[in-house]
Each structure stands twice: as structure tokens, then as C-alpha cells.
């Protein structure tokens, strides 16, 4: 520690952080076997790679099992209220473009109570990296169906089966004009890390759906995608520039994440057999926070720094002596 400042910047100016530097002193309190542990380890392992000092990174979450995530990272963090993390993060990212702002949310938090904030953050293209842990169940409230649960799901609140058509989070995100949309799986650390990397590199809002196993209330929801015996057939691993088929006998399509037309990405977002993972879309467009701050600079360039005295006086004054 002698030659390294608390933020990891060495005496010679180089930033050298490790996964350990991103672990907070708080005891992790998810259920043993929860998929969140794997995601936490992957994120802690990935963050040093960003090359950003810890104090410049902020994790903001809502409510739910996944939303405890910020407590376990040694960055700045806020565990907020149910569904509102994208809104809170929007205010922070818009006023502090120097920060790297991440949102941690779940299927209930992002798609049920917070659906409105999610779609608007994506459409505005605020520079947020949104990690949506999708376990297709409510965990923290002990096992009710979620907006991504399959129809007919038997849960505590749906003893005769759920009646709701589930959201497809990636379809929803594309419909909300998201520029970056990707999917990955909690247990595939290498793939998860590669998707985080792509999301971090994207300028603007990025939505990453992470299939996450809830071993208590919805165990095995993604087993077919994880089991070595079935996963190769069940998964479609998307890679930019590599060909894929939407059906075994369908035409071969070269995957282009930069295609401005979202039609193919949308088709992929609806595909379930096989299930695509990887980056579906990465089309850059100007980020909201950059544009907002550019307007401020433009206003100063055009009108000069605000003059409070002139503002208060206005153009119609009179003197009383």
C-alpha cells in the first residue's frame, strides 16, 4: 500500500486495481447458491479492466435481491427505492458526465414497478449501463410470479397459474429505441465479462439482460442453457461479423451489431429456440448527458456566463428614491 494511493493510482501515475480492490467490507447476504454471487464475482473481476478509479464509478440499484449489489462493491453506490434506479441514475449521469454510472436491477424492479423509467432512460440514451438480473420470479418477497415468468406459472400468488403474457426484456428495450442490447448468463463468466466489456465501451444507454438462477424460488429456470448436454443446441452465440440462422433451414445472416435498422435485432430478441446470447445491437447515437451539457456550453458561448444581477433586474425597472 505504500506506493499506492487509496484510489489505486500508483506513485508513477498508473492505475493498477484488482478484483479485490472492488470488494467492500460488507458481508454478502444472498442465499447460498444464488446466481448473484457469480455475477458479483464477474463484475468485481471486470471493473479493474475499465481503467477508471473507484471513486469515479457509481452503482445505483432499486429494490429486490439483485439491488443489494452496490453494498458489496467498494465504489460509490446507492440502494434506492423500487423501480426508480434508472431515474435517479439519470440525474446523476446528466449532471456528472465524468462518472461511470451503472444500474443494477431485476425483472420485477425494472419491468414491473420501474418499467416507465427503464424505457425512458433507454429512449433518451442516458449514459447508463443497466444490468438487469432476470430470474423470472420475485425472490425478496418470497416467490410471486414476475413480468418475465412464463404463462401458467404456479406461484404463491398464482396457485392456478399466472395469466400474464411475459415481457421479452430485449424486445421491450429495442422497442424503446435502445442503442445497446445484449444478453448473457450468470454462470458463464467469460461470456458475461465479454458482454460487460462491450456495454462499457458503448457510449449511451446499454441494457444487459443477465439470466440469473434463483435456486430458492425458481431453480433451474435456465438449466437447459447451462447443462453441457443441452446448451450447445439451446444457445445461439452471437458474434459480430459471424453468421447465424434464425431457423435450422433459414438463410444465413451475418450478424451486424451496428445495423441501424433494428429489425434483425428484434427478430433475434423474440427467438427462444435457440436462445441468442451476446450483443444483439450496438448502434451509437449521441448520449443524453453529453447533449445536455453541450447545450449548457452552447448557451454560455452564445450569451456569456449568466449575470445574476442583470437577470434579477430584467428589462423593466424603476427607481424609488
Amino acid at each position: 500500500m505504500t506506493d499506492t494511493a487509496p484510489n489505486g493510482i500508483k506513485a508513477n501515475g498508473a492505475l493498477k486495481l484488482t478484483a479485490k480492490d472492488f470488494k467492500s467490507d460488507q458481508e454478502v447476504r444472498w442465499c447460498p447458491g444464488c446466481g448473484d454471487y457469480a455475477i458479483l464475482a464477474a463484475v468485481q473481476g471486470f471493473l479493474p479492466e475499465l481503467g477508471i478509479p473507484r471513486e469515479k464509478i457509481v452503482f445505483i440499484s432499486g429494490i429486490g435481491c439483485s439491488s443489494r449489489f452496490p453494498y458489496y462493491l467498494s465504489t460509490y453506490g446507492m440502494h434506492s427505492i423500487h423501480g426508480r434506479a434508472p431515474a435517479i441514475a439519470t440525474g446523476l449521469a446528466s449532471s456528472r458526465p465524468d462518472l461511470s454510472v451503472w444500474v443494477i436491477t431485476g425483472d420485477g424492479d425494472a419491468l414491473s414497478i420501474g418499467g416507465n423509467h427503464l424505457i425512458h432512460a433507454l429512449r433518451r440514451n442516458v449514459n447508463l449501463k443497466i444490468l438487469l438480473f432476470n430470474n423470472r420470479i420475485y425472490g425478496l418477497t418470497k416467490g410471486q410470479y414476475s413480468p418475465t415468468s412464463e404463462p401458467g406459472k404456479i406461484t404463491k400468488s398464482t396457485p392456478m397459474g399466472s395469466l400474464d403474457e411475459p415481457f421479452r426484456p430485449l424486445s421491450l428495450a429495442l422497442g424503446a429505441e435502445a442503442g445497446f442490447v445484449a444478453r448473457t448468463i450468470d454462470s458463464d463468466r467469460q461470456h458475461l465479462t465479454s458482454v460487460l466489456r462491450a456495454a462499457a465501451q458503448h457510449q449511451g444507454a446499454a441494457l444487459v439482460e443477465i439470466y440469473q438462477n434463483c435456486n430458492i424460488f425458481n431453480d433451474g429456470a435456465f438449466e437447459v442453457l447451462k447443462d453441457p448436454a443441452t446448451r450447445d443446441a439451446a444457445l445461439l452465440r452471437l458474434e459480430h461479423g459471424k453468421p447465424y440462422r434464425l431457423a435450422p433451414d433459414g438463410e444465413e445472416i451475418v450478424h451486424d451489431v451496428t445495423d441501424p435498422d433494428p429489425t434483425r435485432a428484434f427478430a433475434l430478441s423474440r427467438l427462444t429456440e435457440p436462445t441468442p446470447i451476446g450483443v444483439l445491437r450496438a448502434v451509437p447515437r449521441p448520449a443524453y448527458d453529453r447533449q445536455l451539457n453541450a447545450q449548457l456550453e452552447q448557451a454560455v458561448a452564445e450569451r456569456g456566463e449568466g449575470d445574476l444581477s442583470a437577470l434579477l433586474s430584467g428589462s423593466d425597472t424603476w427607481m424609488v428614491r
Binding site: 431515474a87 440525474g91 416507465n116
Partner: peptide, 29 residues
């Protein structure tokens, strides 16, 4: 009055309006 460094954010709803303001306050605004 953006030349006073004022950022105004017309949010998607009342909740997001205050949420964003609180997020900005966390950041020192």
C-alpha cells in the same frame, strides 16, 4: 437559463422528476 449552469430535465413522470433531482444531489448538485 442554461448559461447559469442550470440543467432542466423534463422527466417521464413526477417520480422520475424527483428521482433525477435526488440523483443529481448525490452527485453534488
Amino acid at each position: 437559463h442554461k448559461n447559469f449552469g442550470v440543467r432542466t430535465f423534463q422527466a417521464e413522470d413526477e417520480i422520475a422528476g424527483i428521482g433525477a433531482a435526488l440523483g443529481a444531489a448525490f452527485g453534488g448538485a
